[in-house]
Simulated scan of single mutants.
Amino acid sequence: MKKVHLTKVTQKNKEFFVMVLDPRIMIELLERVKPGTSQEAQRPWVVPKVKEISRYVAGKIKISDDYKAMGLIPNAPILSITKKLKIEKETVSFLEKGSTVKRDNYFIMIPEEFEYEKYLDSFVTIDGQHRIRGFDKEYRDPLFENSIEYEMVFCIFEELTKNERRELFWVTNAKQDKVTSNLLRLIKNYLGLLGTSELVFDVCNLLNDEDISPLKGRIMIGSEKVTKGYKEAQLSKVLEKSQVFSTLNSLTKGDSELICKVYSSYLKSWENVYKVSFESPDNTPLTKISGIRYITFIMPSVIRILQSKKLQFTTKSFQEIIKHLDEVVGTNVFEDDNVSLAFRGEGATVKMAKDHGTSLEAYHSTLGSDYNPLEGI
Rank of each mutant, 00 (worst) to 15 (best):
F17Y: 15
V18K: 02
M19Y: 00
D22V: 03
P23C: 02
P23F: 10
P23G: 12
P23T: 10
R24D: 07
I25Y: 04
I25R: 08
M26K: 07
I27W: 06
L29K: 06
L29V: 06
L29E: 06
L30C: 05
E31D: 12
E31C: 09
K34G: 06
K34N: 12
K34E: 14
K34W: 05
P35G: 03
P35W: 07
G36E: 09
G36C: 11
Q39D: 10
E40S: 13
A41Q: 11
A41S: 14
R43F: 02
P44H: 05
P44T: 01
P44K: 09
V46M: 10
V46R: 15
V47M: 07
P48N: 14
P48V: 02
K49W: 05
V50P: 02
V50G: 02
E52D: 12
E52V: 07
S54Q: 08
Y56A: 04
A58L: 03
A58G: 05
G59V: 05
K60G: 01
I61T: 13
I61W: 11
K62W: 09
K62P: 00
I63Y: 12
S64Q: 11
D65E: 15
Y67E: 11
Y67W: 12
A69V: 02
A69K: 10
A69D: 08
M70T: 13
G71N: 04
L72D: 06
I73T: 09
I73A: 07
P74D: 02
P74V: 05
P74M: 07
A76T: 01
P77C: 00
I78F: 03
I78T: 14
L79E: 03
L79K: 03
S80F: 11
S80E: 09
T82H: 04
K83L: 07
K83Q: 13
K84V: 09
K84G: 11
K84R: 13
L85R: 13
L85I: 01
L85Y: 01
K86F: 04
I87V: 15
I87Y: 05
E88K: 15
E90R: 15
V92H: 10
V92N: 11
V92D: 07
V92T: 14
S93W: 08
E96G: 07
K97P: 00
S99I: 09
T100P: 02
K102T: 09
K102I: 02
R103Y: 04
D104H: 10
N105E: 13
N105S: 10
Y106G: 04
Y106S: 10
F107L: 09
F107M: 08
E112W: 05
E113S: 12
E113H: 04
F114E: 14
F114H: 12
F114Y: 12
E115C: 01
E115N: 09
Y116L: 06
Y116P: 01
Y116I: 04
E117L: 14
E117D: 11
K118F: 03
K118T: 10
Y119V: 03
L120R: 14
L120Q: 11
D121W: 00
S122T: 10
S122K: 08
S122D: 08
F123Q: 07
F123Y: 12
F123R: 11
F123E: 07
T125G: 06
T125L: 11
G128A: 00
Q129K: 10
Q129M: 13
H130I: 01
H130T: 02
H130P: 00
R133G: 00
R133I: 00
R133C: 03
R133Y: 14
F135P: 01
F135M: 01
K137H: 07
E138M: 10
E138H: 13
